[in-house]
């Protein structure tokens, strides 16, 4: 059996290109524009520049009256890197994206809920073999005034089962299982802080089946489990660097990419 890899697709994207450079996230610059963050309050979405760091985004969202669980991730991580290092987080929180492909062309995913038509273009910015760099992202967030946080303690097995139950019910927005404590953030009347940043910060993440209590328990033993019960999604945050980001960009497109993203940001 042959496992599917995105290298097949990246190879086709690069068809005809003989010169390629190894993709280095540090070389990519997405310049934030004049409006780094706007709110779509009817849909509880934040429209953000992908060049923002997690720290900047958390602060900007807070100022706009919204919370996200992104304060759990490394302060310096930028939004466009989220899909590469923490694809399960991006898959849950990215509502839609504008991006530039490795050929330097623009890409926009549909801006409606569950709106992918045909293959989901959001896939282009997810995983360790991205096909595109996000320049602007619509993020799912929660109004601060709606947030209520509850905390539960117990054994790993008990808390994993409880988290599994939350995913089954689909009611809470996000939940964190961390060293014998389950933090749950959902809609409520009380004003409560979002989850605090963790130390040491995670370096990578992978999806786990949210309906699988055994997998959640195992994941909790190797890292912190972050779940988005209302979306049926869960994953584990890990301190190891994870798979290397492995897209090779055509040399000519690399310059276009930086120019295009800067232009789009402006």
């Amino acid at each position: 059996m042959r496992r599917l890899t995105l290298d097949d697709i990246a190879l086709c994207l690069r068809a005809g290109e003989s010169a390629a450079v190894l993709f280095d996230p540090a070389q990519v610059t997405v310049v934030p524009g004049d409006a780094p963050c706007t709110t779509q309050s009817a849909d509880q979405l934040l429209d953000v520049d992908a060049g923002l760091t997690m720290a900047e985004l958390t602060e900007t969202a807070r100022a706009a009256g919204y919370r996200t669980p992104l304060s759990l991730l490394p302060d310096g991580l930028r939004v466009f890197e989220l899909g590469w290092r923490f694809p399960f987080v991006a898959e849950a929180l990215f509502h839609s994206v504008s991006a530039v492909t490795c050929d330097g062309e623009p890409l926009h995913s549909p801006r409606a809920p569950r709106s992918a038509v045909g293959p989901d273009l959001l896939g282009a910015v997810l995983g360790p073999h991205p096909l595109a760099v996000a320049t602007r992202v619509r993020l799912r967030a929660m109004p601060q005034s709606h947030c209520q946080r509850t905390t539960h303690r117990g054994s790993a097995a008990e808390l994993a089962a409880r988290l599994c139950g939350l995913v089954h019910k689909g009611a809470a927005r996000w939940a964190l299982l961390d060293e014998g404590v389950l933090h749950v953030v959902g809609v409520g009347t009380a004003q409560a802080p979002a989850l605090d940043a963790l130390r040491p910060p995670p370096m990578s993440g992978r999806a786990v089946s949210g309906s699988d209590a055994l997998a959640l328990e195992q994941a909790a033993r190797t890292g912190r489990v972050l779940a988005f019960p209302y979306l049926g999604r869960a994953g584990v945050l890990r301190t190891d660097p994870g798979p290397a980001v492995g897209l090779a960009l055509p040399a000519a497109a690399a310059a276009t990419l930086v120019a295009a993203t800067a232009q789009e940001g402006a």
Partner: peptide, 21 residues
Amino acid sequence: IIEAHLDDDRTGPAALRFLVG
């Protein structure tokens, strides 16, 4: 013969999202 999984470390959820639909 191909497979794609949400929890596949090597592809992340991308491969699955490309095939669905």
